[in-house]
Nucleic acid binder design. Structure first.
Lengths: 139, 139
DNA sequence: CTTGACCTTGACATCATGGGAAGGTGCACG
DNA sequence: CGTGCACCTTCCCATGATGTCAAGGTCAAG
């Protein structure tokens, strides 16, 4: 099948399929006489694997490792688990950062009357750097 | 003062100060005869405002709006509050996405024995697309 | 005058993705 | 056979926020 169909079937855009090929994440696709890329069911499986990995927030680098492990029948699951757990830690760290921001903002927002008057604790906090809830927003 | 000192005082790197000037987020700085940018206390306040906004995760576009409101003495605090609340919503949406990913990954990871054996539910899930905890990772 | 710290601009990298232009291909319909 | 449309190709540029590096100018102290 052509790249467009492969894109529809896998959920990875044609643009990204070409990109993944260019950066060596996937093998070079076969070509028709006219130069069109062709994909088979194995390629589709790989593309779907990549898309699911992306949906779980894995980076290209991590996906590269996961793909290698996937294709290595003798892999140790410990390595896969290690990658996943490291990724979980990264995601949770991000969540904590966002949570800090949200808490600060919610506090500020709650104290802003939000009407036509110009005085506003949100701007005051941004201007002065004083804390709105007793902690700095970034560690 | 020169850009390096302004960077140290405001917590915004010299690189970013130039960048913010280039994209029109801040006014063009004054220059010495030799072409060095010069900054005063007003500029420092602006830079610090920007850095605090970035620390709270506001985008450049949002900061542009916040700066305009900050410099408008007749602003209505409602507008500031609106921007802040919209930003809170965005942050929370991101957190929810991350949380979905984490839950899926934790479930998969818990069922992966993580030893030298090759069978691994994490890879199986990535390969097959079957759900590991009853919900899809992406809406 | 030299040295080192600082400044200047500019180009390129990251990360994952999208947009668009310019031109070739494949197929179906008339 | 011809025309048109959908599809493919490559290449360049953009995003957002930041960093790195390079080549060169400037300033102040020794």
């Amino acid at each position: 099948m052509n790249i467009g169909e492969a894109a529809r079937a896998s959920g990875v855009s044609a643009k990204m399929i070409r990109h993944y090929e260019a950066i060596g994440l996937i093998e070079e696709a076969g070509r028709t006489g006219a130069g069109y890329r062709t994909y088979g069911s194995r390629d589709l499986n790989t593309l779907s694997f990549i898309r699911r990995s992306r949906d779980l927030g894995f980076s290209i680098t991590q996906i590269r490792d996961l793909l290698a492990l996937w294709q290595d029948r003798a892999r140790a699951s410990a390595e896969v688990k290690r990658i996943a757990e490291q990724h979980i830690d990264e995601l949770q760290a991000k969540m904590r950062q966002l949570q800090e921001m949200v808490m600060t903002l919610e506090h500020l927002s709650a104290h802003c009357h939000g009407d036509a008057r110009p005085d506003c604790p949100i701007l005051e906090r941004l201007a002065s750097g004083e804390n709105g809830h007793g902690r700095d927003a970034h560690s």
